[in-house]
Amino acid sequence: MSGFDPSLLLTVDWPEIGTATLDTLTMLGVSLLFTIVFGLPLGVLLYISAPGQLRARPRLYAVMSFLVNVLRSLPFVILLIVLIPLTLLLVGTSIGVAGAIVPLVVGAIPFFGRLVENVLREVDRGVIEASQSMGAKLPQIVFKVLLPEAMPGLIGAATVTAVALVGYTAMSGVIGGGGLGDLAIRYGYQRFQTEVMIVTVALLLVLVQALQSAGDALVRRCRFG
């Protein structure tokens, strides 16, 4: 790659870039949604079942914690391939945007769950003790104390997860997942079309920046006082 001619940008296939952008946004949006739906309860469960916590179940915690570590230690590329049978079972196809979402979610749940667990641990023990002293039941503690008190941290965790998911979507090209990362690899890397590489990388950068800014703005809005 020597001497990049800016006029090459005019030759970029913009409609294809558009489709890829939409694919990335779809994968990101759907997988983030499912990650939160499953990851948040997982994080709460990890938190309350940990030794010394509200409903300490040391053995259950050890098992869950181990599974979370296993999933987190698998490189995402491997996960993509290992999960093909599960993906087929759940969405009927193992390729394309739909095929990418299952491994994205499976990869991100343990990541987000662990972040949630850590955020919840930062909630002041004294506040939890106070609510226990007022006779709060466990669900009341979770929904009225833990989650509201941890909200800025939870939004922060969701933001970090969303940014990580953008990175994962790029790899889903391996199974024909599509999206901007896929485009960057196929055209930019494999066919030496530097202009496509530049455009996709720029778009990914904008996306990550936008996610981070949106997350930060939300955290600022719900920070207390």
Binding site: E129, A130, G135, K137, P148
Partner: peptide, 22 residues
């Protein structure tokens, strides 16, 4: 029953332990 009874035992703390989110 203990949880029910606790509703009628008030407790005040050194570090107040108020909910920041409220």
């Amino acid at each position: 029953e203990l949880q029910l009874r606790r509703q009628r035992i008030g407790m005040v703390f050194q570090h107040f332990n108020l909910l920041r989110s409220r």
